[in-house]
Design a protein around this nucleic acid. Structure first.
Lengths: 209, 209
DNA sequence: GTCTATAACGGGATAGAC
DNA sequence: GTCTATCCCGTTATAGAC
């Protein structure tokens, strides 16, 4: 029963607060208050608020890059895709503060801009790899023009669904249901699947509602 | 040659600044500086910064409600839909500061939350009316489950496309191209159109690239 | 490592003269 | 209507004791 290091407690608490009331609305004082430590102590562990944001973003980045490393030339099943989407939305939800005030956050922590854009590009690539796999397996029929539009759309949705959904119940920013997002993503793909797979995907998608 | 009232100049300049650097990053001092008036003068016309935001939102709201009043039981052509989408994106782009820091802005100006949600609901309704019209004209074939998912997706895209697009070139927040958004929206609808209309819509969509 | 106290700064907003 | 001066407050961050 080892006691958690203060540094880590700061990170955890910051993340929770950022997610629940928005990063711009969280002061260093609020964080230290919540932890029952002094502001000075907080600044012993992190030299600035930006450093906390930075490190949280780093964790997010790492998890995402891991997740997005979808192997090419592998046959991906609908089930696997569902699982992938589920993980993706779950991860985004855990770091939703980044997306909720995206432009604002990126404008105040400029060093994150490039990293974020890289992540965004990786997402699009991952979706494109998945679709290619479907195509190879004759599960999907789609022109290259629509493929590109589709992948962009998937990326957009992966980024913003949780914010969009939050707006339906802004009262409590805690409530986040990753399932709806997965459902929505699947319905973007469905029209391009071949008949049998459409039915299967439709059935699957309902589990996420 | 009548001279523009200071009050209006404040609104115009605020909007421009909000859009270009983000509402949270715009101080009342910056606004008055930009206008070459004193901060005191600004506060003579508006009793708070929130009032400026409020009034700008009001303008946006009015324009949007106007636009979204799509008549039911009318046959809507693809061309008309394209025109509608164009206006929609153009309007959103002119008030993009609202969307760029959406959750943040709504959390700091609580009175906007309800109004925004109503607007969002109106959007979904408008899309649903359009799709119904297409369906009546036998231009579209779609189940009710996918129809709902589609309308949600259209609403999401209408809200966030410009933010999403901005991320590709965060350097200058000025550059906004509503066309890409229209293109993307059309590609959401296309899969559900009947063969002939699919071709026509695809051709049309290219004009927006 | 942790605390208390406080400096330093910036932004929103007001008072009162012109 | 417009100005200058200023207040008030919250927030980040530091200094120095324990």
């Amino acid at each position: 029963m080892k006691k958690i290091k203060t540094r880590d407690r700061i990170l955890d608490t910051s993340l929770a607060l950022f997610n629940s009331v928005g990063e711009p609305n969280v002061t260093t004082l609020l964080i230290s208050d919540e932890l029952d430590i002094s502001p000075g102590n907080l600044y012993y562990h992190f030299k600035s608020k930006g450093d906390i944001v930075d490190e949280l973003f780093g964790r997010f980045e790492e998890e995402m890059l891991d997740l997005l490393a979808v192997p090419e030339d592998v046959d991906i099943s609908l089930d696997q895709q569902g699982f992938f989407l589920h993980l993706l939305f779950e991860t985004v939800a855990r770091y939703r503060f980044i997306y909720q005030d995206l432009v604002n956050v990126l404008s105040r922590y400029e060093q994150l801009q490039g990293r974020f854009r890289r992540l965004r590009a990786r997402k699009t690539t991952a979706f494109s790899v998945i679709c290619e796999s479907f195509r190879r397996q004759k599960m999907m029929e789609i022109g290259s023009e629509q493929l590109q539009a589709l992948c962009e759309q998937l990326t957009l949705t992966a980024c913003y669904w949780s914010s969009f959904d939050t707006l339906s119940h802004l009262d409590d920013r805690e409530a986040v249901d990753p399932g709806r997002g997965v459902y929505q993503m699947m319905h973007l793909v469905i029209p391009y699947l071949t008949a049998d797979d459409q039915d299967q995907a439709r059935l699957m998608s309902r589990d996420y509602l």
